[in-house]
Simulated assay, not measured.
Amino acid sequence: MNIQQLRYVVATAEHGSMTAAAAALFVAQPALSRAVRQLERELDLALFARAGRGVALTPAGETFVHRARAALGSIDRLRTTASADQDSAPLVIAASPTLQAALAIPILAGLREHGARIHARLLGASSSAEVAELVAAGRADLGLCDSAVSAEPAGLVRVAIGRAEVRLYSPAGLDLPDRVTFADLAAVPLVLPTAGSDRRASLDAFFEGCGITPEVAVETDERHAWLAAVSSGVASCLWHSLDPRRAPLPGVVSRGFDPPMHRTLVAVQRGADERAVSRHLLEVLRQVGELVA
């Protein structure tokens, strides 16, 4: 889901047809229709039903549009605040390398496309616990986490922002079904975090719970090397996906699990943080999370 799709859905609801909405937004009607239908498939919801020569909102669509308007209002406020705050210190966002690539960069890119030009600095962290500690200590304004923090520091505001699917990314040509089981992982060489790291401990516990012993092909904490190893045909890896339909690199095949596996995404911020840009961004994340839910 992206901001453009929210604007398309709200405009369609306001104008009563996709043709009129496209004319009002100065976009091609087929492009608007594809974006709206793609969003419906992604959410597994019918937002519109045919009504004469136009469309009308379904009950689910009514709820979605109400929340989408609120999210777009927050994005507009963020854009105004970011423009007025251009010369201030950068907004520091703490996240694991995976979430920097899978969540932080797409968020910033989407906001930039719609006028909210945030000067951000990404701060790496090895675990969700470290992300929370960086935010609590004032070294980061906002943190992005993909797992629960067992001992979350006091004074933090915690906001759920949706779920990311965990998928298996493999070299093209690997003989695997379209949807893999956890047992299939036993026969696939994997790239994993280094032994002794928090991430590796979490994955080792997962493998033990599945009753499998993984074949470790590469150990590295440099996440950019993970997908490089996959595209080079060396190994497969487990990776978050906010867009399951898209493979991250040529020659890489993305497969979901059966049953599907997800990680809850959470943003954390100091409750006493007075930076308007940080507050507005957290509100945008909260409202977009409600839309996904």
Score class of each variant (00 low, 15 high):
residue 2 N to D: 15
residue 8 Y to H: 13
residue 9 V to G: 03
residue 12 T to N: 07
residue 13 A to K: 09
residue 15 H to V: 04
residue 17 S to K: 05
residue 18 M to Q: 15
residue 19 T to C: 01
residue 22 A to K: 06
residue 23 A to K: 10
residue 23 A to G: 03
residue 28 A to I: 03
residue 34 R to L: 13
residue 44 D to R: 14
residue 47 L to S: 02
residue 53 R to W: 05
residue 61 G to Y: 08
residue 63 T to R: 13
residue 67 R to H: 14
residue 76 D to C: 02
residue 77 R to Y: 01
residue 80 T to S: 11
residue 84 A to K: 02
residue 85 D to P: 00
residue 85 D to A: 10
residue 87 D to W: 06
residue 87 D to R: 13
residue 92 V to D: 04
residue 93 I to W: 07
residue 102 A to M: 10
residue 103 L to D: 08
residue 105 I to P: 01
residue 107 I to C: 12
residue 109 A to V: 13
residue 112 R to N: 11
residue 112 R to M: 07
residue 120 A to N: 09
residue 120 A to Q: 07
residue 120 A to D: 04
residue 121 R to I: 09
residue 128 S to L: 04
residue 133 E to P: 00
residue 133 E to W: 03
residue 138 G to F: 06
residue 140 A to Q: 08
residue 140 A to N: 09
residue 142 L to D: 10
residue 142 L to V: 15
residue 143 G to Y: 11
residue 147 S to R: 14
residue 150 S to F: 02
residue 158 R to K: 13
residue 158 R to D: 05
residue 158 R to V: 15
residue 166 V to W: 00
residue 178 D to N: 10
residue 181 T to M: 03
residue 185 L to Y: 00
residue 186 A to F: 01
residue 191 V to L: 04
residue 191 V to S: 03
residue 196 G to F: 08
residue 201 A to K: 06
residue 206 F to P: 00
residue 210 C to E: 13
residue 210 C to F: 01
residue 213 T to W: 00
residue 219 E to G: 07
residue 230 V to K: 02
residue 232 S to A: 15
residue 234 V to I: 14
residue 237 C to D: 05
residue 239 W to N: 01
residue 240 H to F: 15
residue 241 S to W: 04
residue 248 P to S: 01
residue 254 S to M: 05
residue 255 R to A: 04
residue 258 D to C: 02
residue 262 H to I: 05
residue 264 T to I: 09
residue 276 A to R: 05
residue 278 S to Q: 07
